[in-house]
Simulated assay, not measured.
Amino acid sequence: MRIYLPATVTELGDPDGLVARVVHAVTPALRAALPDEDEEGLEFAAQLLAADDSLDLLGERPDAPLRRVVVAADVPQEAVAPLADDDAAPSAVRLLTAVPWSDVACAHVDEVAAAEDVTAALAGDEDAADRLADRDLLWFDVGELARLAAGHE
């Protein structure tokens, strides 16, 4: 199962991989919420919802670089469980295990220039949040993530 894991740039440097948390995936609830979307559109929707959660993570981790990060990984179906939260996004599921880098396909990351909008969005600026929603995240191969975490990208 492909999951979209909200993260921070700092976490990309952890040699042990990424710890369990709420992630996003193409779920039956997401399919029901977006019945006209094809598989690619559903995956993109899950990725965008993970990017929103990454912004929330940045609000909790002021030491992290101000770039949203979404890590795409492939995990067994039994590595995720439904959420018991009625307020959760329709794509949200609970990841039950850590994700090693060997299970990661790639990461999608804001460009450095997005930092100003990230800061403003975290301060409640809705226009900045809209600009972030319109930004395309940059694609990084899993082999590039340690360099990115070290500040070399």
Rank of each mutant, 00 (worst) to 15 (best):
L66H: 14
E126R: 08
A120Y: 09
A121Q: 09
R131I: 14
D74N: 15
T119Q: 15
Q47F: 04
L34P: 01
H152Y: 12
L148F: 05
A72M: 15
D141A: 15
G41D: 12
L49S: 06
L12Q: 00
L18H: 03
R31T: 13
A46I: 00
L34V: 08
L12F: 03
Q47A: 15
R61V: 06
V71I: 10
G41A: 10
G143P: 05
P15V: 04
A32I: 04
A20E: 13
A89M: 11
L58W: 07
A92T: 06
W139V: 14
P90E: 06
V104K: 10
V80E: 02
L57S: 02
D110G: 04
P28S: 00
D16V: 10
L34K: 03
D74V: 15
L83A: 01
G59Y: 12
G124A: 04
D53R: 07
P62T: 09
P65Y: 02
H108C: 07
A128Y: 00
D127K: 08
A128G: 06
E116T: 15
V109K: 00
L57G: 06
V80L: 09
E60G: 11
V75G: 09
R31P: 01
T119C: 13
L138G: 05
R21P: 06
E78W: 05
L55C: 06
G124M: 06
D56V: 11
A50I: 12
D87E: 15
L58G: 05
L66T: 13
D85N: 14
V19F: 07
P82W: 04
L5Q: 02
L12T: 02
P62N: 03
G41K: 06
V75T: 13
A115N: 11
L96G: 08
A25G: 10
V19L: 11
A149Q: 03
Q77I: 02
V23E: 00
R67L: 10
G124K: 01
D85S: 11
L49K: 04
G17D: 14
L55P: 03
A92P: 02
R147N: 12
V9N: 01
L145W: 08
L42V: 11
L148A: 08
R135K: 14
G41V: 11
E37C: 07
E78P: 03
R147K: 14
S54G: 14
L57N: 02
A32Q: 11
E43K: 09
L57Y: 05
L48N: 10
P65S: 08
A51S: 14
A150V: 01
R21V: 00
D127P: 03
S91F: 05
L55E: 06
A73R: 07
A98W: 10
D63L: 11
D74M: 11
E40R: 14
P62I: 05
V26E: 03
E43G: 11
V19W: 09
V93A: 04
T97W: 07
V109I: 15
A150M: 03
L58F: 10
V118N: 04
A32W: 05
A121G: 09
H152M: 10
